[in-house]
Design a binder for these strands. Structure first.
Lengths: 220, 220
DNA sequence: TTAACCTCTAATATATTTGTCATCGTTATT
DNA sequence: AATAACGATGACAAATATATTAGAGGTTAA
């Protein structure tokens, strides 16, 4: 499966977009006609189709219709026309978004990121073999999915959001438990231990959650 | 649950849009501030939020962020600014679409129809050996067909529409029962149990509707 | 009006998370 | 090397959250 399939007859424009997208780690394929686009789509599938409407031969709407017959794959329509009709046709045919040429590359990238985020919920923090998904509240280590408790989840996200920085035990404790908490700071070390068991390759030799002696912990 | 929640401080504009949408059989609520919008959202839930960015007091981004903390509810952003920044912020925060003021009502309606179509139009949800038919409100598990009650159906579709995402018990409860309901959240767990009996292979070991301890539930 | 069904409640049982403690290991300091 | 301070660990207890069951009350359709 390709991440993004671009159907665009202006090769120069397509190349620029490809470069930017690849820089953001998407896998991208591009082609210049409706027929080739459909062929690629049918052969490999795609997570998003970026579709120019004005194409030589069959136009973009043709591709959109064919794609919609098979799936809900998101389609982002690109059009040089400013005609309202174009926009309406595209949206009614089930396009997910619409952008006009000439477009600002930042906006295009934002739209694409947005589609991926919404559709494939990339609200993930990926770090080596560790993937932390905020909305589903899961950690995946390698291919094992492990569930986290509330406290563990809070602690881990707090550490990761301050990646590389050492957070004092006091700060961690006050932030998560509240400074008026009855619990003892000792509790924190127990939670750190439990977290390490879940995310570290070898919990005895932590590589991610490091102890900073006399101060606190930091996530690397 | 409301179909469409409109947050727009220009009352005249909101009224026009309301009329058109009601003519298309959507149930619509409108309000003029971020706070009221959030309050309505939390109280009743919505299937789509149409959100003006420029509001007196807290702005639309504030609402968007709060909504995203709880669910995947589609959000359509409306902005008078043509500033690129606005657009970028909205899309990066997870808005589903963007339209600029002044907008053409036909385009607005097309966008809304599109969002509903993409998001809610599938009558049959197939997931492994499980088939959920929305219009007949039946579930087919293997070769057994079972009917769902109203509450079960609402709960299941809400979970499925936010598949993979953990929904808090509070959110589920408020969206289905309304926050002014007399019922207790305890009721929710009973309904979850009944749903599991209908859709899970082994209700004792749920594979679809998972408990997220201390938070709520998620559908996988 | 009755019968069937849906929904909520309350009581109880079960499960999970969180906190505490005693003890052991490690590091820094003298 | 001895010591003191700190952190790690494992076992257990307490606190919290969820699951289950049965039944009361309400709603709907025949």
């Amino acid at each position: 499966m390709i991440d993004i399939l671009i159907v665009e007859d202006n090769k120069e424009l397509a190349d620029v977009l490809c470069d930017f997208l690849r820089a953001e780690q998407y896998t991208v394929s591009a082609c210049q006609t409706a027929e080739k686009g459909l062929a690629l789509y049918e052969k490999y599938g795609a997570r998003l189709v970026v579709l120019d409407i004005m194409l030589p031969g069959k136009d973009g709407f043709y591709v959109l219709e064919k794609v919609r017959e098979k799936s809900n794959t998101p389609v982002l329509i690109v059009s040089a026309k400013t005609a309202k009709d174009d926009k309406l046709t595209g949206l009614d045919l089930g396009a997910d978004d619409y952008i006009e040429k000439p477009y600002d590359i930042d906006i295009m990238l934002a739209k694409i990121r947005g589609i991926f985020k919404r559709r494939y919920s990339l609200d993930e923090l990926v770090d080596g073999s560790l993937r932390i998904n905020k909305s589903s509240r899961t950690i995946i280590k390698g291919d094992m999915e492990m569930e986290m408790t509330e406290k563990e989840f809070e602690l881990l996200t707090l550490l990761i959001e301050n990646r590389g920085r050492t957070l004092s035990k006091e700060y961690l404790f006050n932030t998560i438990w509240g400074s008026d908490s009855e619990s003892e700071q000792q509790t924190l070390t127990v939670h750190i231990k439990r977290l390490r068991e879940k995310i570290e390759e070898d919990p005895k030799k932590p590589q991610k959650i490091l102890t900073v002696w006399g101060v606190g912990y930091k996530y690397l």
